[in-house]
Simulated scan of single mutants.
Amino acid sequence: MRNETRGTLELTLAMVLSGTLGVFVVESGARPFEVVFFRCLFGALALGLYALVRGYFAGHGFTARSLGLALLGGVFIVFNWVFLFEAYAAASISLATVVYHTQPFFLVLLGALFLRERIPAGKLGWLAVAFAGLVLVSGVRPGDTGSLAGLGYALAAAVLYALATFVTKRITGVRPHLIALVQVTAGVPLLLPLTDFGALSGLGAGWGWLAGLGIVHTGLMYVLMYAAYAKLPTPKIAVLAFTYPAVAMVVDWAVYGHHIGLVQALGVPLIVLAGLRVTLGRGAAPAPRTAARVPAAASRAATRAG
């Protein structure tokens, strides 16, 4: 099988898994803080075992600076998950996922704010298109506090993931699997004081869903993504990444009967199109093939994964 074909299959499978994330969160029956704590715990065990078997710890490449950046990115990622899962409960998986995909626009704004990168007029135009799509997709009314809260949580999650991506892009010479391992491991002590273990006593089958979030949606999914990133050009990664929200919307409808209205549906292609234009506008060079350079290329597309 050709490398690019295999990468396409790997990334498509990873994005399909991402699309089922919301069901695992909701079906676990746990609060977002507990869900994220155990996603980090089980995910760290899964990624740690994979890295150990593959021998990635030898010559890991971390310096004090890169380890600090990875930990900071971990803080952003952990609380991004908390806000995203809160959005699932306050609104719906479909709404939260689509709004969450405004991440690339916040990344552009962060570059302008902290790196003084100039935003071309064309990009500003696509940001305006994305904002129009966001207004349509939200479908919220001033008195609809639930949807407004869900929209706010999803936007907060998008900002936090953009911050995580912004920080992670500055790490070089370290395998992405190890960066992800550091980031999810950081979530364990970070969320330990905020986790109500007493509320988990009657969780029952919910433990299976929590384990799935860590093993499948963190361990397996990230391994598949990073394997694919090394085989695919950036434009293809950007396009395939939108499999995630598409699957999430279908799953939300099939499992919970949630669907977005006609006016909201009009906003989805605006966000998708603007997201593609902004993402590809940052450079359409092929994804680097070396492990040391993968994080920089992958981080742009990884903003799509839950």
Rank of each mutant, 00 (worst) to 15 (best):
L115Y: 13
A211F: 13
G208K: 14
G202M: 04
E34H: 03
R304K: 12
F76I: 05
A91R: 13
S92L: 05
A158F: 10
G204M: 04
S28H: 10
I171S: 07
G74N: 10
P104Y: 04
F79M: 09
F242H: 14
I93A: 07
E34W: 03
A265R: 07
F24M: 13
R6P: 03
L69M: 12
G152P: 08
L72Y: 05
G212V: 06
P176Q: 07
V108E: 02
G68R: 14
T12V: 14
Y88P: 00
A284Y: 05
A211D: 08
I93V: 15
G267D: 13
S18A: 15
A87I: 10
A130Y: 10
R277F: 13
T168L: 00
L69G: 04
F166Q: 06
A180T: 15
H177Y: 10
F105W: 03
L213K: 06
V255Y: 06
L52N: 06
T290W: 02
L163H: 02
I171M: 12
P189A: 11
F57I: 12
A90W: 02
G122R: 14
G146S: 15
F37T: 04
A248F: 04
Q103S: 12
R300P: 01
L270W: 03
A58Q: 03
A132S: 14
P286I: 12
G219N: 04
A241W: 02
F24R: 06
C40R: 07
S138C: 07
V255H: 02
M249A: 14
P269Q: 12
